[in-house]
Amino acid sequence: MNVFRLLGDISHLLAIIILLLKIWKTRSCAGISGRSQVLFAVVYTARYLDLFTSYISAYNSIMKLVFLAASYGTIYLMFIKFKASYDHNHDTFRIEFLILPCVLLSLLINHEFSPLEILWTFSIYLESVAILPQLFMVSKTGEAESITSHYLFALGSYRALYILNWIYRYYAESHYDVIAIVAGIVQTVLYCDFFYLYITKGIYGQ
């Protein structure tokens, strides 16, 4: 565990908590893409099946369980509890255009053709693009509440910090994973436009 990895995980956790709190406190999920949230639930489910097969540490298991629970909790709040506030008219990104290519790509480009490995690869590919419905929604409505912006900033920072973690691990442990690195870079690049707006708006005010 290095500092970049830890900061990345904290940033990821923060993003999820910000989202849950926003929905809970305002009793509304307006401006949040349910489709992105469903994709994230698929991502965590596919990746964290290893909870059943390998134990790394308490930290590792607890974080995985928290991500899973928070993700399904968010879906429950959006699609059941505060369903009336869900802005489905603006949440129209066709997720099959993301899921199908990711399925295909994970079958073609993976480290090992085994079920768990393919699911892991699929989750990495899908995670890299899972935010697109949310970014599409923000661009469609032309604005995001500041709390939604904080959520996006924290979520985007997480993968950017993981890239620094991978650079560190490459030098410190001579270890790298091409699939994770390429997908992580794609994921971070997708946030760049948003990062730019977030920082400039943050500095220069509304």
């Binding site: 995980d9 790394i56 892991w120 270890h175 994973d177």
Partner: peptide
Amino acid sequence: ILESFRHDEL
């Protein structure tokens, strides 16, 4: 090595 990376990172 591959194994530990897989399951360790979130």
